[in-house]
Design a protein around this nucleic acid. Structure first.
Lengths: 190, 190, 190, 190
DNA sequence: TATGAATGAGCGTTCATTCAT
DNA sequence: GATGAATGAACGCTCATTCAT
C-alpha cells in the first residue's frame, strides 16, 4: 500500500466510522486498525484526531462544491439554472449517501470547530449568495435578508436529502425531485 | 435545596454545558459540580449520562409542543392559523435561546439515540402532520409527500431560528418576521 | 413485617446473593431491595457490610455445629460414632445446599477476616480435635500431627460435599455416602 | 524494561497483591503502580482485570502441572509412583508459597469464572484421573466414583499444603512428609 | 515512513454509608 | 425503628498521543 493509499484509507475509514458510530465513539485506534495501518501512521498524516475531522469535512464540502460548479448550467434563465443546480446537488447526495449522512450529522455539531464550519459554509455557498443577489436585483427572488435566505437554502437542502436518504425508493421518481425543488424555489421567489 | 430542585439544577446545568461545550466534552462530574450536587446525585436521578440527555431532549421538545398547542389559534383560515403558529414557535425560540441552540446542535446528532429523536419528532410534529394533511385536502397546500414537507418544515424552522438567534435585533422588525413566514408558507402552498 | 422478620430477611437474602453473585458483586442496596427493606434498615441491624458477612458466617457455622452435636451418638465405638457424625454432617450439607455452597466459597476467602474464620473453625472443630485425640490415645487413629489431621478432615468434608452438590442424584445412594466416609476414615485410622 | 518484563512484572505483582489483599481489594491502579508501569499498560496486555486473573490462574496451574509431569517417576509400582508425585507436588508448594496460597484462596472463589476453574482442574488433574483409573483396574485403589476421588485428592492436597505452609519447619521431618502421604494414600487404597 | 507498546489524565459509574425526616 | 435521597472517594477502563525502533 502506497503512502497516498494509506492516507486515503484512513480518510475513507474515518468517514465510515464517524457516520456509523459518531466522532467521539470512534477511537483513532479503531480507525487505524480498520484502515489496516498502525496507530502511529494516522498521526503521521494528521496532527490530531480533530485535524483529521476538519480535513475530512472540508474535503467533502469541496467535493460537493466542485461537483456543482463543474456541472452548472448558465442558460441565462435563473429558475432553470437553479433547478439544474438543485438536481446536481441532490444527485450528488443520492450518489454519496455516506457523505450526505456525514453532513447531516456534523453540519451543526460541536465536533467540528465553528470556524471550520463557517469556512466551509461560506466557501460552498458563496456562489449561492451571488445567485440569490442576482435574482433579487432582477426581481425574480424576494427581497428577504440574504443570510436568512442562505440559511433557508441550507436547511432545505439538508431536509430534502434527509428525505431521499430515508426513502431510497423515491430517488428515481422525478416527481419527488421536482417537488423538492418547488419547495426550495417557491420559498425564495417573488 | 429540595429533591426536585436538585434534579432541576442538574437538568439546567446539563442544558447549559451541553450547548456550550458539547455532549462529549461535558463530563458528568462537571455537571454535578456546577449544579452544586455530588456526582452520585446525578446518577441517583438519571441512570446514565445518556438517559439524562434523552430526558432533557424530550423535556424541551415537550415544552415547545405545549407552548405551541396552548397558544394555537383556530380561526378557520389555514394561512392565518399557520402564521400564528409560526410566530408562537419563533417567539419561543427567541425567548429560549439556549434551548433553541440545543435543538440546532442535537436534532441530528448521534448523541441522542435515533429512537428518541424519532419519538420526539413524531410527538411534536404530529399536529403539524395533521395541519398539512388538512391543507392538502382543501387544496391550499401542495400535494408533496408528507414526510418531505415535514422535513422541510423542520428545516425551515431551524434555519429561521438560526437566523434570528444570530441577528436578535431583527425579530422586532415585522418585515423580517413576515419574511421568515413567507418562505415557510410559500414553500408549501399550492 | 416485624423487626426480627426484617433482620432475618436481610440474612436470608444476603446468603442467597453472596452465593450466587459473590460478596463484592452484591451491593448492600441490592440486598435491601431484594429483602424488601430500605437501604438504611440494613445498617440498623448490621454496622457494616462486613459485619453482616461475619454474622452470617458464624451463624451458619454455629447451625452446623449445633446440628452435629445435637444428633451425635455416643456408642463408645469410635468408628461407629464417627460414621454417624459424618452422615449427620453430610445430610446437613445436602439439606442446606445454599449454606454448603457458602462454605465452599468463603471458607478460604479474604472476604471474611482471618480471625473470624479461625474463630469459626476452632469452634466447630473443637469436638473434632477431642475426638481425634481420643482416637489416637486408644490406638485407633494414626499418630499424625493434630493440626494436619484437622486440616485433612476439613478438606475431606469440603471435597465430599462438593461432590454431592455437583451430583445431586447421588444423595440417596447409601453406597456413595459410605464411600465418602471410608475415604475420610481410612485417611486417619491406624 | 523490555515488553516481556513489563507483562511479567504485572503478573508477579498481581499474584502478590491478590494473595495479600484479595482480588477485589486490589485495584488495577495499585497493581500497575507497584509493578512500575502505567495503568494503561496493564490493559494493553490484559483486556480486563478478570482476564488478568484468569491468565494468572491458568499460568500457575500450568506451572504446577508441568513441574509434576516433568519430574514424574514411572517405576511401575503405583504406590511408589504416587508417593513420588505427592512429594514433588508438596515440594513445589513449599518452594512457591505465594502460588500455593493463591490456590488456597482462589480454587473455589467466584473471582475466577467457573469455566476457567473447570478448565484448569480437568487440565491439571487429567493425569490424576488416569492414574486413579489405572489403580482401580489393578485393584490397588478403591472403586469409589472417580470425581469423588478427584475432589478428595484436591482437598487433601490443599489441606496438606496448608499445614506445611503454616508449619514450614515440619517439611524437613520425614515423619510428617510420610504422614501426609499416608493420609492421602490410605484414603484411596483398597 | 511506519510501527505499536507505552503512557496517564480523565472518563462514566458504583456503592457503602450517613442522616434528616 | 424505618426510610431513601444524598454523598464523594474510588473503581475499572479508555484513548489521543508519543517515541524508540
Amino acid at each position: 500500500m502506497s503512502k497516498i493509499d494509506k492516507k486515503q484509507a484512513i480518510l475513507d475509514t474515518a468517514l465510515t466510522l464517524f457516520v456509523s458510530q459518531g466522532f467521539y465513539a470512534t477511537s483513532t485506534a479503531s480507525i487505524a486498525k480498520t484502515a489496516g495501518v498502525a496507530t502511529g501512521t494516522l498521526f503521521h498524516h494528521f496532527a490530531s484526531k480533530n485535524e483529521l475531522m476538519n480535513y475530512l469535512f472540508l474535503n467533502i464540502k469541496q467535493e460537493l462544491a466542485t461537483e456543482i460548479q463543474s456541472k452548472s448550467s448558465n442558460k441565462g434563465e435563473l429558475q432553470l439554472d437553479a433547478e439544474h443546480l438543485w438536481n446536481v446537488a441532490i444527485d450528488w447526495a443520492i450518489a454519496n449517501p455516506l457523505k450526505q449522512e456525514f453532513f447531516q450529522q456534523y453540519s451543526m455539531s460541536p465536533s467540528i470547530a465553528a470556524e471550520i464550519r463557517q469556512q466551509a459554509m461560506t466557501g460552498i455557498l458563496s456562489f449561492m449568495g451571488e445567485l440569490i443577489t442576482h435574482g433579487q436585483k432582477t426581481g425574480i427572488l424576494a427581497n428577504y435578508p440574504l443570510s436568512l435566505m442562505l440559511e433557508g437554502c441550507h436547511g432545505q437542502y439538508l431536509a430534502a436529502t434527509r428525505y431521499f436518504l430515508d426513502h431510497p425508493d423515491k430517488w428515481q421518481d422525478v416527481t419527488h425531485k421536482q417537488a423538492s425543488f418547488s419547495m426550495f424555489w417557491n420559498a425564495m421567489k417573488t
